[in-house]
């Protein structure tokens, strides 16, 4: 019997169920999409665990899920930025850039070839580019919040906590991704686990805040 419940999958499952409970009646497509996205991420994680035990390679589920990761997170940023400016072109430009790097990665590493290549991260450049891009988006969202004259209670702001999760994970991952090969120890993996916990905890809390926001606005 394979152990599917690891540190990473447990927190992902918690976040998925939180999303399912608190976002199911959501009308905003970006927030509703988080349920679908988290389901895809959980499926990718479980498939990766199965593959690594049975076939000793597990890269391709991650290579597929990265496409959904870029799309759903961009969609969410678009929804958050739209409150301040028309962000469609910025987000599409970011996605186009990621797509070009992804195609380059695929050509370089013969994507989806079912062979043992566990020590070589196929989507290295895409991951790095995504970390930088989403960190910039998160910082820009903070800048917009600072610039905004109206006051919002950050403690209960769904958008703020969602972006905070993104900033912790992708800003931290930027360094870890760059130096992964140089740090010859379990440290990068441990830090990644901490970052995964941070993003999913922040997101779970943001889903709860989102439900409060909708309840308050209806009342």
């Amino acid at each position: 019997m394979l152990n599917y419940l690891t540190e990473n999958t447990s927190v992902e499952l918690i976040c998925f169920f939180t999303a399912l409970v608190f976002l199911v009646s959501e009308k905003d497509i970006a927030w509703l999409g988080m349920i679908v996205y988290l389901f895809i991420m959980c499926s990718a994680e479980f498939s990766a665990i199965y593959l690594i035990k049975k076939h000793h390679y597990n890269q391709w589920p991650y290579n597929i899920s990265i496409v959904f990761e870029a799309s759903f997170i961009s969609l969410m940023f678009n929804s958050l930025f739209n409150k301040y400016f028309k962000s469609k072109f910025v987000i599409l430009a970011g996605l186009a850039l990621l797509l070009c790097i992804y195609i380059y990665d695929v050509r370089e590493h013969h994507f989806l070839l079912f062979k043992d290549i566990t020590h070589d991260t196929l989507n290295d450049k895409t991951n790095n580019a995504m970390s930088i891009l989403f960190s910039l988006y998160a910082l820009y969202y903070y800048y917009l919040l600072i610039k905004d004259d109206s006051y919002i209670n950050l403690r209960h702001s769904a958008g703020f906590w969602w972006v905070t999760g993104v900033l912790f994970f992708y800003f931290g991952s930027t360094a870890i991704n760059f130096f992964r090969r140089e740090l010859n120890s379990d440290l990068p993996e441990d830090i990644t686990t901490i970052l995964i916990w941070m993003i999913y905890c922040c997101w779970s809390y943001s889903f709860i805040c989102r439900r409060w926001e909708i309840k308050t606005s209806v009342a």
Binding site: Y142, L145, L154, F168, F171, G172, A175, F179
Partner: peptide
Amino acid sequence: GSIILVVSLIFLIAPVFILAYMFVHN
């Protein structure tokens, strides 16, 4: 290795300071 570790730690701690600044500013 030490330099890389320090740089990585800076990257990990920086968001905490940004978050603290956001709350103070708010």
